[in-house]
Each structure stands twice: as structure tokens, then as C-alpha cells.
Design a protein around this nucleic acid. Structure first.
Lengths: 182, 182
DNA sequence: GAAATAGGTCAGCAATATTGACTTACTTGG
DNA sequence: CCAAGTAAGTCAATATTGCTGACCTATTTC
């Protein structure tokens, strides 16, 4: 507390800046901050998914169908096992939505080339169109939020969300983005 | 397209800087960026909720119970109507979880002072303890992510998530944070 | 006293998830 | 070639969480 007495007159030559440099160089880990994050994740995620839900409702599909369409669309030729590993649901849960999507002509199956036990999943033209429609709804929401928040905030958002994920999800994200692997 | 021919030699006097100033002052609205955001929200939200789900599972409770505990804890004395407005579920859906929480001694009801039709909801001591336990699990996750991402990213995360929410949710967030209204 | 409001309740339905057991088809390794 | 392992499909049963619509009680308000 000896620093409390430093503010003695030095000849009026030096005037300190009115505000400290950048906000604060340490993370605010207060309960209030954590509570806010809880709320932000709940409300933000709800809003984000709801815009796609409206489209799905017209077609009698649910959020689970959307997820399957999304990950098949992004990973054409994915196997059932790999899709299960991404979604982390049981085979039975996936079967229900997958059969519905196949019956309604949104998803196609093809046996693997080298291993014919595999069923490689792809979107049909109708499936791509539907996935695009769902994506557009969410994209509109994101575009609005992105423009409202600014590019720096978007980068921070991505950093935090990635830090929130577990290793498996990070590995998926890293492999699926720029490389467009296969 | 006349600008295409501007790059003629000017005497080797002027050397342009090797890199453009800050990253980019505009938002990247490419499909790749939007796809990434979809994945980040899905995986991040799943991970965030899963840490609380583990605790809930021990007690035979679900995510719906957690949400009710959370919003009652943050808004002591909230009415059933207001809770329904926040959660945006039906009276019947709330009644199921609310009755379970009351039966198990986590939530207490009291008639309103001026309007005795109202049932003001509060957490019992056990309810506060449980909510705290659930909060701690999610807080640990957030602390890890916060520290990994840094304070600037956290601010960006908050900005984006807020921009994603609808007006009703923003109004709730604004009223529930620093003011601790009532 | 009638109408509106806050809340509770009942019956039934749908979507999504779970577990466990079993079958079929195919690949692999001794 | 045959046995074991793997990928996938399926069946039956169950739980959670949401929905609708109808109806009831207590209380406030006009």
C-alpha cells in the first residue's frame, strides 16, 4: 500500500492518460461473468436452432434430421459408424432419422468400394436442396449477428467456442474446415 | 476494369508494405465461415451442457429441471407465468419438472403479497446447493475455456452471442445482470 | 356479480434419446 | 476354408421433454 502516496505533484509537466490502455489483460472469472455465459449460451443456441426448426416443421422433420443432413452434407461418403461417432447418439437413434431421410429421398446409400460392409452416405439433390435451405435460414441469422458484432468479436467467439469443445470435436473441426479432406 | 493496367513501373521509388494493416476490417461472411459457426455452436453447446448432465443423471433429473433451477435461482420470487415466458415452453411441460422439483424439496412456493393468485418460486437450501453444484461443473468448463481463449476473445464471444439472441432474450439479459433488479 | 387472470391438472400424442439382444453381410487371419 | 471380428440393420421396451386441448379453482378487477 506504499504506492498510495505516489501521486505527489511533479511540476505539472507529466499528465497521465485518462484511461488505462486496453480493457484488462486478465480474464474476469467472477460468478456474474459465468452466469452471463450460461444465459448467453442458452438463449443464443435456442435462437440459432429455432430458425431452422421453423423450416423443419413444415416438412414434419426434427432437429435430429437436420443434424444428420448437416454432417452428411459436409462429409459426403461418410460411414454410419463415423456419423455415430460425431453425433454421439446410439445406432438406434440414428437409424430412426436416417431411415426417414432415406425413405423421403434426402439421403442415398452406397456400399464401400474396398469394404462392402460399409454404407457410404450422401445427400441426394433433394437432400442438398433441403440442407441448403436450412443452412440459409441459419446463415441469415449469423450474418445479422456477425455484422452487428463486428469481425473482432467473431474471432473471439470462434476462439471461445473452440476452447469449450472437447478434443474429439476439435479434431473434427480441424479436419473438416479448410482442407476439405474426403 | 480499366484499373487492370495501373501496375506499370514508376521508378522503383515506392515499395508497398508487405502486409495490409490490421487483419481485415470487414466481416467474413463466406459459407465456410458460416459452416464453421454451425459446428462450433453445436459442439460447444453440447460440451457445455454435458458437464451438468452428468450431475443430473445421478439424481434422476434432466436438463429441463436444470433450466428451471437456474432461472428460479437467478430470479428468486419469480412467478410461474414469468418463468414460462423465459423458457418458452407450455404450462404442462413446466408443471412436470416443477412438481418434481417441489416434491423433492428443491423449490418452494409462496403466494404473492398483493396478488394472492401468484405463486412466487424460490429455491430451498437444497435447491440452492444443487444449483450451485450444477453451476460449478459448468463454471469449471468455462474457466478452462476462458483462460485458454483470453479476455479479448471472451468479450467477442459475449458480443456475438448477444447479437444472436432475439429481443426478448436480450431484454432478460439486460435486466438480470448488474442491476440485480427483482 | 361477471369477466379476466394466475395457476393447476388430466388425457393423449410426438420426437428424441436410451439399453440390450439379435441378425445379416462382409472381411480378416490362422 | 473356416472362425472370429466388424459394419450395419432391426426389434422391443423405456425415459425425457416437448406439444395440444380441455377443464377446474382461486383471486382480482371492472
Amino acid at each position: 500500500m506504499t504506492g498510495m502516496l505516489k501521486a505527489k505533484p511533479r511540476g505539472d509537466r507529466f499528465v497521465p492518460p485518462p484511461k488505462l490502455p486496453p480493457p484488462t489483460p486478465v480474464v474476469d472469472l467472477s460468478p456474474a461473468e459465468m452466469r452471463l455465459a450460461q444465459d448467453l449460451l442458452f438463449f443464443g443456441y435456442r435462437e440459432f436452432t429455432s430458425v431452422a426448426d421453423k423450416v423443419l416443421e413444415e416438412l414434419g422433420l426434427g432437429r435430429a434430421h437436420h443434424r444428420a443432413l448437416h454432417f452428411i452434407g459436409r462429409n459426403p461418403g461418410i460411414t454410419v459408424s463415423d456419423l455415430l461417432a460425431i453425433l454421439r447418439i446410439t445406432k438406434q437413434s440414428l437409424a430412426r432419422v436416417l431411415n426417414a431421410l432415406i425413405d423421403q429421398g434426402y439421403v442415398a446409400q452406397a456400399p464401400g468400394f474396398e469394404d462392402r460392409r460399409l454404407r457410404l452416405l450422401t445427400l441426394t439433390d433433394a437432400g442438398q436442396a433441403l440442407e441448403q435451405r436450412l443452412f440459409d435460414a441459419q446463415r441469415d441469422k449469423l450474418v445479422q449477428a456477425w455484422c452487428e458484432a463486428g469481425p473482432q468479436a467473431v474471432e473471439g467467439f470462434q476462439t471461445v467456442m473452440r476452447a469449450l469443445m472437447d478434443r474429439g470435436a476439435r479434431a473434427y473441426i480441424d479436419g473438416t474446415g479448410p482442407a476439405e479432406d474426403a
